[in-house]
Amino acid sequence: MHNSNSVMVNATEMARPFRKRPVEWLRLPSTIEFLNTLSDVRKSHITNLVETTRGNFPTIQNREPGCTKM
């Protein structure tokens, strides 16, 4: 469930010009550390920060207010 303060971006479309896939970014140790820290700061489970879908739907990254890293 998304609240009115969340911002959704299409990570697949953002990564496409660089010939990358969001899953590559999500596997980086620095990304894992970042998401764990953001989860602690926001007092929100990590699954509330990143949403992925498969098939005909794009991968979506949930950037909460104040989050500038992608």
Rank of each mutant, 00 (worst) to 15 (best):
P65Q: 08
V7Y: 06
H2P: 08
M8L: 13
N36R: 12
D40H: 13
S39T: 03
R19S: 10
R54F: 12
T12H: 02
E33T: 10
M1L: 05
N62H: 13
L38S: 13
L49F: 03
K69I: 14
N56P: 02
R54E: 09
E13P: 00
H2S: 09
L38M: 14
T59G: 11
K20R: 15
E24V: 05
N5M: 04
T37N: 14
T68Q: 10
H45M: 11
L38G: 12
A15W: 01
S39N: 03
V9I: 11
L49M: 07
L26Y: 08
P65S: 09
I46T: 11
S39Q: 03
M8Q: 09
S30R: 05
I60E: 02
G55V: 01
N56F: 07
P65V: 05
K20S: 11
H45V: 12
A15Y: 04
V9T: 02
E24A: 09
V23L: 09
G55T: 03
R21Q: 14
P58R: 01
N3F: 03
I46D: 04
L28I: 00
C67Y: 15
T52Q: 09
Q61H: 13
M1W: 04
R27Q: 11
R16Y: 04
V50G: 00
K69A: 14
E33A: 14
V7L: 10
T59H: 11
V50E: 01
T47A: 12
L49V: 03
R54I: 10
H45K: 13
L35H: 05
R21E: 14
R27G: 02
P17S: 03
L35Q: 08
S4P: 06
V9H: 00
F18N: 02
Q61K: 13
N10A: 01
L28Q: 15
H45W: 11
N62V: 15
N3K: 07
S39W: 02
E13T: 04
L28K: 15
T52E: 10
N5K: 05
S44Y: 08
I60L: 09
N36W: 08
R54K: 11
A15V: 04
W25H: 09
L49Y: 02
R19D: 12
L28F: 06
R19N: 14
F34D: 12
L49T: 02
I32F: 05
Q61W: 14
N5C: 03
S6P: 00
T59W: 08
P29M: 00
